[in-house]
Design a protein around this nucleic acid. Sequence first.
DNA 1: CGACGGGACGC
DNA 2: CGACGGGACGC
Length: 368
Amino acid sequence: MENSTQCSQMNGGTNMMPGSGQEESKTNLIVNYLPQTMTQDDIRSLFASIGELESCKLIRDKATGQSLGYGFVNYKGAADAQKAINSLNGLRLQNKTIKVSLARPSSESIKGANLYISGLPKSMTQLDLENLFSKCGSIITSRILCDPQTGTVAGGIPVKWFDGSRNGEDEDAGEGSSSNENQSISKGVGFIRFDQRSEAERAIKQLNGTIPEGATEPITVKFANSPSSNKNALPIPPVAAQYLTPTRRFLGPIHHPAGRFRFSPLDSGQLLPNNLITGNTMNGSGWCIFVYNLAPETEENVLWQLFGPFGAVQNVKVIRDFATQKCKGFGFVTMTNYEEALMAIQSLNGYTLGNRVLQVSFKKHKNT
DNA sequence: CGACGGGACGC
DNA sequence: CGACGGGACGC
């Protein structure tokens, strides 16, 4: 129905449509990369702050009920939908950067259009990859996997903003110099999602086994695995579950103009430890939590997953030995709200992770 | 048992 | 050799 060149391939443009007069469904949005803990109501309240909604749906795993990390938000008016894209696309929520874009009309032909590509030269950038595949069709998303370890910059969020699927590349304007010395090292594998499955099939036929210009080895192009297997993600959102009952569900957004509601179950001011009132751990922007007895191979995502369910997590840090890059057994988590930090500590202190019993407390002052 | 980072006024 | 994203189309 739509002219294959819909708004899907918006390279080169910003996220406001240049001037193509496509008046299809400009009210329905797809929201991707939602934090695991966000509920449908969380999403609704976030997007309803922009304008009146027609509907809102979080997609969940049918069997487990777990969020699949994306959903659909349909506005009554197209202007509000566009406004939501402009203001919420790229919003950081917990450890995620959400993506907000127009949803394509649901159709069989767009399913199974995701490709897995391996054997890429390390020097190949996301843009190179797109250039290679764009001749086969309209690219929705592209991505090159990078070594996670190099991405652990202070701030804990290795997100380099998302895929070049929408605004081509503004990275040249970004860090100026970082283009060459690619701070993160490509693993030589990547993904391309096409608009249509037929385009993906074409890409396999045309590009599988071929050697990219300037490369020496052929690449492998195949369909990506179905996203059914849940590889990462801790066994369970530990004890946090009991705090996430409907009666006291809380929204996780860290900082967003629309000040969110916040419950405060504890009013007794003396709950604050003495050494905390002075502001030792209260860094002006958050409460720093010390986590002890982490396994040597612990990575940042473990801390995100452990603490995320309790509320707004600003930052996590796994302390590693410089030489071995193994975790030294402890790490830090900074949470925005005291109540949430306290609940996380109370719930996770003594929690058995793997075969280790965690010790979790507010970070102590350096010299006391 | 053990155990609390790292960068950092920047007008 | 290698390896499945941050779960992208209504679960």
